[in-house]
Design a binder for these strands. Structure first.
Lengths: 195, 195
DNA sequence: CTTGGTTTTGAACGCCTGTTCAGTTAAAGC
DNA sequence: GCTTTAACTGAACAGGCGTTCAAAACCAAG
């Protein structure tokens, strides 16, 4: 036996995913060819197929990995004060998403390029994330800490608003991440009618 | 002279744009071929070039027409009470966008498929629309009717939130358009700290 | 019914697509 | 230093791409 450890696949594999992530985010899944990804990695197109069975799976796994990371990272303590839980969620969402703009972009833009089965899988993960915020809003409404007519819609509204940050926020711009988190937390706090 | 009136181009032209709008929204600009559009129209691919110089221009004109319509339709009366101006904007945005989901989808998703020049043109139009809401928020802040720390960011937050409606709202669903407009107006009113 | 202009066809252009695979390269373990 | 095998190349496959254009079809006006 030879070449089991220290083989290049440990290096090339991540580089393939990184190149795909970058190019898909920049130009869109359908507009990027396997040869473009290969060139970015510094390899021939055929070599990519050591790391993914096909282009569709490459996209799906990028999205799934992103959603998995998101679900692991979001943490909600049901025993904490509900206002604090909401603040934590808002700051977390902005912070987490601002650190991986490419993955976020792909996760929101390339859903329609997934086949039906993969689409359904991603949708499950997305719903699980939304459910975290819905739970917070429902608990807050039940405790009369919040005044939200429809927690589902309020959750969608908050998430859309927070995710929108990624369209303009750039590190080193006019506002620091902290500034942005403060401002959005302020807006969300009012939005849910905190009493 | 012959065949000046009643010629087919008056019919085919709009049909080409309608087919492109539908297919671009469903599958994405890069994933749709000129032959697919032609099939949808019931014509050969070559015939499309009587109606657009190329695929890129077809996309650009769909986006430009949508933005033009939007800018004509949005109406803000600087002399009206500022709270009323904001309410009108919120209800208008939701109503206008819910009527043309395909065009909205394209306008937000296909920016990266525009060449640099066309991208810049669309960005100008988008800024003009954002400026309408910014003006309202600024006026409201100046009159101490609103409490907004940063009108630019508040405008982005509101627009992102409102545009998010299109990802889930379907006519004939659980909520009527009026319900949705009411709920979002409620959230926005609180968000800007109406006094 | 002919004329003249509009609209469409259908084939062709060169190039790019995702994917496969026999053959080459190179490094780790003996 | 030889063997083994993971990693990669480079060519090929069948098919699709955007776009062009001569020729045909079509239809209203004269």
């Amino acid at each position: 036996m030879a070449r089991t450890t220290g083989s290049h696949s440990d290096i090339t594999g991540p580089r393939v995913r990184a190149a795909a992530l970058k190019l898909f985010a920049r130009h869109g899944f359908a507009a990027v060819s396997m040869r473009q990804i290969a060139t970015e990695v510094g390899v021939q197109a055929g070599a990519l197929y050591n790391y993914t069975p096909d282009k569709q799976t490459l996209l799906f796994e990028l999205m799934r990995d992103h959603m998995d990371e998101l679900l692991v990272a979001v943490q909600d303590d049901p025993n904490a004060p509900v206002l604090q839980r909401l603040e934590h969620f808002v700051r977390f969402h902005i912070g987490f998403h601002s650190e991986r703009p490419d993955a976020v972009f792909i996760a929101y833009m390339e859903l329609r390029n997934l086949d039906a089965e993969n689409f359904a899988r991603i949708e499950v993960l997305r719903s699980q994330y939304e459910a975290v915020l819905q739970r917070i809003l429902r608990d807050g409404a039940a405790a009369r800490s919040f005044d939200v007519a429809d927690p589902k819609i309020a959750a969608w509204a908050v998430i859309a608003m927070l995710t929108g940050v990624n369209t303009w926020f750039r590190d080193g711009g006019r506002l620091s991440l902290d500034d942005v988190q403060d401002q959005y937390w302020n807006m969300v706090r009012r939005m849910v009618g905190t009493v």
